[in-house]
């Protein structure tokens, strides 16, 4: 698993969830693997290096301004960072632009992609389980539609008092 710890570290900053919560989804490995399928290894190395510099320069706390300047607005790293956030929330890999893929991606990637029958350059849901573990659902005070049932009648509870929402932090 390529640089999994770095992937979690960066993800924790991008999503504002603690690493244990991200690991707790059980699908971090799949996301990291997906990333390696579409982004060149040397580009990932540079990204993690860039991020660790941001941490080092500021005593382990990443300055939001610096993150925007060095990473999110960067034409190479920005699309990766945004795709990482989207994976955690929506469990979807969104196709990179052709231009970006030609320069930094692995356009020739041809082995089967998890969760889909044939390799596809289009947006796809990473796996059954990933869909269920998307972070957007608990954040909305809900649960993934079709999974993690909260129980009979919970939809009548006041949203904040709902026992379904106790683990939403």
């Amino acid at each position: 698993m390529y640089r999994l710890d770095d992937f979690y570290d960066l993800s924790a900053t991008l999503t504002d969830y603690p690493v244990t919560r991200l690991i707790g989804t059980g699908v971090g490995n799949e996301y990291n693997q997906t990333l390696s399928q579409w982004v060149r290894q040397d580009v990932l190395d540079e990204l993690y290096h860039c991020f660790s510099q941001l941490e080092r320069n500021n005593d382990g706390q990443v300055c939001p301004q610096a993150l925007r300047h060095q990473l999110l607005s960067n034409e190479k790293y920005g699309p990766i960072a945004r795709n990482i956030i989207k994976m955690w929330y929506l469990s979807i890999w969104y196709k990179m632009t052709d231009n970006w893929s030609m320069t930094y991606g692995i356009p020739a990637y041809s082995s089967p992609v998890i969760g889909v029958e044939s390799p596809t350059p289009e947006d796809y849901i990473i796996s059954n389980n990933a869909y269920i573990q998307g972070l957007v659902w608990p954040l909305m005070g809900s649960h993934p539609m079709g999974a993690k049932q909260p129980g009979y009648g919970t939809w009548s509870d006041a949203p904040l008092n709902s026992i379904a929402s106790i683990h939403l932090q």
């Binding site: 049932q149 129980g151 009648g153 026992i163 683990h167």
Partner: peptide, 18 residues
């Protein structure tokens, strides 16, 4: 019963952590 379902959720999050 509903509490049982949320218990499952927090337990599974814990159990996925080495």
């Amino acid at each position: 019963v509903c509490t049982m379902f949320s218990l499952k959720e927090v337990i599974q999050i814990l159990m996925r952590n080495p």
